[in-house]
């Protein structure tokens, strides 16, 4: 089983990294031929950085759009962020002081994450408009993420797993050594689902994560009278 998980995680990580890198390259190489920020928009690059930060950290547009979705979405994403930071402890040795300080926040953030996901999922059943636009994969993603959250939280709050051994396993993977992984049902479910998430990420709507940074309506400065935006293919037309 240890060997299976070792191979699975090498594979999943490779697919995740290569797939995501390819999509980011694909977004980056595709030109934005016209200036299309949704206005009012910042007129400078610094202003754009602030707008993007507000968008990514606070979900500003969503806040303006729908408070319920904002609440659940923000709870889930911030919970996930805290949980992910806490998980760094399984990949860094020794654990730095700031990460130790982070431990309790990361621990209870699991509930934030699960609550947020629960709220988002409930809306998919309860709100007619959202039920209409929901595809089967939307449900499956929520199931997967909640599965990851619950199986993870179960190891912290219900039935402990030998975390020292888990850490040894992942630290080992990073230097191509295979150390035994504890056989704990919650851990097995947790890792299987995480590997699945990593594999599917580059092929799914989870691409909204890199996508938001490339969204021309949000990442362009509003300066078309001062600065010319010209894509390579459009410049080619001018030569004709």
């Amino acid at each position: 089983m240890t060997l299976f998980f070792a191979i699975l995680f090498y594979l999943a990580t490779a697919l995740f990294v290569v797939g995501l890198a390819y999509k980011i390259y694909d977004f980056a190489r595709t030109p934005a031929p016209l200036s299309i920020p949704t206005t009012p928009a910042p007129t400078t690059t610094t202003g754009v950085a602030f707008r993007m930060t507000r968008e990514v950290v606070l979900f500003e547009s969503l806040f303006k759009g729908n408070l319920w979705i904002w609440l659940f979405g923000w709870l889930f994403h911030m919970g996930l962020f805290l949980v992910l930071v806490r998980h760094l402890r399984y990949f860094i040795d020794p654990i730095p002081a700031w990460l130790l300080f982070f431990q309790p926040f990361g621990k209870y953030a699991a509930f934030m994450m699960i609550a947020g996901l629960g709220g988002l999922w409930a809306r998919r059943f309860l709100v007619e408009r959202i039920r209409y636009i929901t595809t089967p994969s939307d449900h499956l993603w929520l199931a997967l993420l909640i599965g990851i959250g619950i199986s993870g939280a179960a190891m912290t709050f219900v039935s402990h797993v030998d975390v020292v051994a888990v850490k040894a396993f992942f630290l080992g993977l990073m230097v191509f050594e295979i150390n035994p992984l504890p056989a704990h049902p919650a851990l097995i479910i947790h890792l299987l689902l995480v590997a699945l998430l990593l594999i599917l990420f580059p092929f799914s709507k989870l691409l909204h994560a890199p996508g938001v940074f490339f969204s021309p309506t949000r990442n362009q400065a509003d300066n078309p009278r001062e600065k010319r935006h010209l894509a390579a293919w459009a410049a080619q037309i001018e030569k004709n």
Binding site: N66, R129, G211, P216
Partner: peptide
């Protein structure tokens, strides 16, 4: 068009069906 317009490409990939736009 997907090769010429980043907006189209990013917008095709990024929607999560959150529903914020549904009543706008």
């Amino acid at each position: 068009l997907l090769g010429k317009y980043r907006s189209l490409k990013v917008f095709m990939d990024s929607c999560v069906h959150c529903g914020a736009c549904t009543d706008k």
